[in-house]
Nucleic acid binder design. Structure first.
Lengths: 123, 123
DNA sequence: TTGCTATATTGACAACCATCAATATATCCT
DNA sequence: AGGATATATTGATGGTTGTCAATATAGCAA
């Protein structure tokens, strides 16, 4: 092996020959489902904005703040907050009539590492 | 500042006081939509598995390989391949009657950096 | 108590998505 | 040409998702 990378193209099977053999799935269906569920959770513009707002205003954001900052009605804000809470990415604390929401950073870190793990293996 | 983290809780606004002020959206709707569109693309178990298979078998995977490796029918495989291709994450090359698919690593790298950028800011 | 405000829930509706059978297209082989 | 194989497309169907109006719940204030 020299430092110059040799122009070897690995061809375990010639183009045009019999195919449909030897290709296996390294990423299990269970793992794929787990990750895709979490990605679905953040793959929505409003939820991305909510997470961004919460992350940048730790513990100081109530629902009406979000309603004022986002282009959706209160019921819809509550709906997305519920999804994020059920997905374990955020939680809230009630103080009087207000509910103050905040991110759960360990959960976000886990998600980041999981996603980064795959994406780094790919590119 | 000592090594002991002081138990100071930042309270720019007392709990229970008037809220709905001063909270702004740093992540623009346009940016959120762009990212969520790309996340949607990979937020599906089959598409995650397809990307993983393609990334680990550079240039050597035809549709019937995928059909054999995945729990879905050929029409559905083609459907997901089309979405991934239209999203710019993969492409294909025809050799005879086979279509060999492969990932577009620069696009995956861009996506990784974009996602990592936000997630790193959050956790 | 009565009324006001903040938040959650319910129910309805439209839009979107995943899947497959059937069919079309294209390429190879004889 | 005719048959076989690989892939793409179409159309139908069932399921999921996002949104909102209306309503419910709960705390606060007078």
């Amino acid at each position: 092996m020299t430092i110059d990378t040799p122009m070897v193209i690995i061809e375990p099977r010639a183009f045009g020959s019999r195919c449909c053999e030897g290709v296996t799935v390294d990423l299990s269906l269970a793992d794929a489902q787990l990750l895709s569920t979490q990605l679905q959770l953040i793959a929505h513009p409003v939820r991305l904005q909510i997470l961004d707002i919460l992350a940048r205003n730790a513990g100081q954001v109530c629902v009406c703040d979000l309603e004022a900052a986002l282009p959706i009605k209160q019921a819809t804000v509550s709906h997305h907050l519920r999804l994020l809470r059920e997905g374990g990415l955020i939680d809230c604390e009630r103080h009087g009539q207000w509910a103050y929401y905040f991110t759960l950073q360990p959960a976000l870190a886990v998600l980041r590492e999981r996603a980064l793990g795959l994406l780094s293996a790919w590119a």
